[in-house]
Design a protein around this nucleic acid. Structure first.
Length: 524
RNA sequence: GGCCCCAUCGUCUAGCGGUCCAGGACUCCGGCCUUUCACGCCGGCAACACGGGUUCGAGUCCCGUUGGGGUCACCA
């Protein structure tokens, strides 16, 4: 039997990080077993703009390299892959269940039902619906209808016995049928509910393994009941632990951004992302710009490989030492029996560590491709960037080494290479410390400027030599001049090697920046 | 509240009865490297929730307690 898994998101307009983890495991499991991964859209809720609400989800999955074998855009033998287009199948299933006496028309009003529910609220017993408004015969239906009542279709759940599920990650789980309610499978308006649709589709699409998040575990009995009632062979079930909030065990939720911001690491991640986002002028409202949403990472310039690697390890592990996985290794090693049962907290720091690690291994040419769009979008370089700027960027990336950890960092780290000499911004604190405060700073800077102006070679090695000669002849420590020069030329207290910066900037620009700093100093 | 799930360093985890005075990774803290910031390297802090069993022997099995979480819709 070929393994077939599915991920069935609702078109909500965004791709949740927890959802992606589920999708990833489904995909990994299918692909690791030469099976197929199906994407199905759970849009029974029927919204106006399904395509708009779907795009971020499809884009996100594709960006991460979680490609589906069947589903929207690619089709497949079991289409359509939108539940809103499969209602005929659901109706057939409802009729079948009705005929078999496993479902019934119920004419209770919501209020009447609520009264019954409330009556059991303080009782220790489960809530068994009295079925007072169950229509057993056509006469019953007619009678209720003359009373002006409308009906829904409910499952007629067993009131005794128990269900045993052998879950692939949780093991044996038992449920008492009597605790299950008579769930609605078809609304009064004729539309069908998720559980019915899901079970029917899973069967029709020959899904062999239902892999989903833990919160669905308690929903499983009713689905099993439907499946069995329809004579389906049951799929295997695997209920994954959910992804928890940073610093707690609650399910990660998009809505609680404000709360997560109180977590230092999380706040830092958002702040860092926000700086990049603002530099490229994109919206940073929490609705769209939020680390709980996958798009955040794409916009800031994280690597999909890093996200995938991190997510894979959230609830799964290979052994006691391997953590660094490429897509290939993941595919070769993934298995459901090594999935953990406890929820795993989302840790921004650890995600960053994976990003650093993966980014380090990206060759310069590739980094160039990733970073250039950020510069173009920021307006720091023209679009499309002319050849000489691309060449300059390549050098910058080269000399930046491992300092740049996310593609978007190029804007925070190396913007000074592209800003005009007269508008480059200084780190004011550093300017004070290195230029204004030391009594001899201005004088040393002036002398060093003369040396630079006279320099014939302007490559990093020559400049370093020049600097050392300068230090020697002035009889000063290198720290007395080099920090000042860095601030004057880059405006920052961090960055690539000093001499690389000078060399890339070029003599003219370096001198201009020194002149500007001197003006500021004398103006004070 | 009922039902269900879960429980090893701050975090992610390894551990499937003895090789565990519990291993790795991230974080954090020292140190080295160094013109900055990173990287890298070296070192350190730090955990089996509790209580009963079973067993010659329990982080590992069973029961209970506690704690955490999920779920109880004409949402998905």
């Amino acid at each position: 039997m070929t393994i077939r898994t599915r991920f069935a998101p609702s078109p909500t307009g965004y791709l949740h990080i927890g959802g992606v983890r589920t999708a990833l495991f489904c995909w990994l499991f299918a692909k690791a077993n030469r099976g197929r991964f199906i994407l199905r859209i759970d849009d029974t809720d029927r919204q106006r703009n399904i395509e708009d609400a779907l795009r971020p989800i499809l884009d996100g999955l594709r960006w991460l390299g979680i490609e589906w074998d069947e589903g929207p855009g690619v089709g497949g033998p079991f289409g359509p892959y939108y539940q809103s287009q499969r209602t005929d199948n659901y109706q057939v299933a409802v009729e079948k269940l009705l005929e078999a006496g496993l479902a019934y028309h119920d004419y209770a009003t919501p209020d009447e039902l609520q009264v019954e529910r409330d009556a059991f609220q303080h009782n220790e017993q489960p809530f068994p619906y009295s079925r007072r408004f169950m229509a057993a015969t056509a006469e019953d239906r007619a009678k209720f209808q003359t009373e002006g009542r409308r009906s829904v279709v409910r499952l007629k759940m067993p009131r005794e016995g128990k269900l045993i599920i052998d879950d692939l990650v949780r093991g044996r789980v038992e449920f008492e049928w009597a605790r299950e309610q008579d769930h609605v499978i078809q609304r009064a308006d004729g539309s069908h509910l998720y559980h019915l649709a899901s079970v029917v589709d899973d069967h029709d699409m020959q899904i062999s393994h239902v892999i989903r998040a833990e919160e669905h575990l308690s929903n499983t009995p009713r689905q099993v009941f439907i499946a069995q009632g329809l004579g389906y062979e049951l799929p295997e079930y695997a209920h994954l632990p959910f992804v928890a909030e940073p610093g707690s065990k609650n399910k990660l939720s998009k809505r609680k951004l404000a709360k997560y911001l109180k977590n230092r690491d999380f706040a830092q991640m958002v702040e860092h992302g926000r700086q990049i986002a603002e530099a490229i002028h994109i919206d940073t409202s929490p609705e769209t710009f939020n680390p709980v949403i996958v798009d955040f990472y794409r916009q800031v310039g994280y690597l999909p490989e890093a996200i995938v690697n991190y997510l894979a390890l959230l609830g799964w592990s290979l052994d006691d030492k391997t953590e660094y996985f490429g897509r290939r290794e993941l595919l070769e090693n993934f298995s459901l029996d090594r999935v953990n049962r406890a929820p795993a907290g989302f840790d921004p720091k650890k995600l960053s560590a994976f990003q650093d690690r993966h980014f380090r291994d990206v060759p310069v040419e590739q980094k160039l491709v990733l970073m250039l769009p950020f510069l173009e979008q920021s307006g720091l370089v023209p679009t499309p960037a002319p050849e000489e700027i691309v060449a300059k960027l390549a050098r910058i990336i080269e000399v930046s080494g491992d300092r740049i950890k996310v593609a978007g960092d190029i804007l925070l780290y190396a913007d000074f290479f592209f800003t005009a000499d007269e508008v480059m911004e200084y780190d004011e604190k550093a300017f004070d410390k290195r230029l204004r405060k030391p009594a001899d700073a201005a004088e040393l800077l002036a002398k060093f400027r003369d040396r630079l102006a006279a320099a014939e070679q302007f490559d990093a090695a020559s400049l370093e030599k020049l600097m050392h000669e300068f230090v020697e002849s002035e009889d000063i420590k290198i720290g007395q001049i080099i920090h000042a020069v860095r601030v004057v030329v880059t405006g920052k207290v961090f960055g690539p090697g000093m001499f690389d910066c000078l060399a890339i900037l070029g003599k003219e620009s370096c001198l201009a920046r020194i002149d500007r700093a001197q003006q500021i100093l004398s103006g004070n």
